[in-house]
Amino acid sequence: MSEAPDTPVLRARGLRKEYGKGEGLIRAVDGVDLDVVAGETVAIMGPSGCGKSTLLHLFGGLDRPSGGELLLNDRRIDNLSEKALARMRRTDVSYVFQSFHLMDELTAVENVELPALLAGRSPRAARRRAEQLLDQLGLAGRARFLPSALSGGQRQRVAVARALSNEPLVVLADEPTGNLDSAATLDVLRLFEELHEYGQTLVIVTHDARIAATADRMFSMRDGALVDETRLTGGTTGKLGALVGLED
């Protein structure tokens, strides 16, 4: 994170994505403007079907916008070739999915090292980095386990480790706790907090208010557009005790 703190890592201007045409036209993303500054955590909340996943796919170069501009580190990425997008996904952005999307036949550590191998790192360096990440995420003892032998929260932490494998500029997470129970959600929340403190830029799409509440900024999304921004840094007005009836 060598950029000046207010240089946007990710910048969207009038971003649009449409599906179908004529009568059946769906504006999944409809004119989104957004700047994500290095080191901040941005949450996007909204009801299901409002276009959150589509927006994140655009950010991650998994899909191409129908219109508007998208810049990653001041470089236009909305008009890149499929191959250049793949390169970008290797090093600049990475993804955490709701359903983990780990490869079932690979062990935790093999899953984590995969992006590094795809990016052409040496097998040894990739393995070392993967083991170090799993260690940091408290999964050192599970490195040789297959995903089927891991709990949901552990699987998602492996997926996060995989996303960090190539030290991306931005980590994009699509409903990362959508398939997790309350305790496992807390695990992942802690992990995001740590990443945040470490200075990792994060964009999280969710309809879990708890995730959103840990962000620096939260956007509400409706019908493909960001309609409200909430800055969450700064103190609260009330005391926690009042919330459980200990104080007035």
């Binding site: 191959k83 290797r90 995969l114 795809l118």
Partner: peptide
């Protein structure tokens, strides 16, 4: 299908 899509999401090119 799924494994290929995942490999591409992780940065493999369509050609690869």
């Amino acid at each position: 299908r799924h494994a290929s899509a995942l490999a591409r999401a992780l940065g493999a090119t369509p050609l690869e």
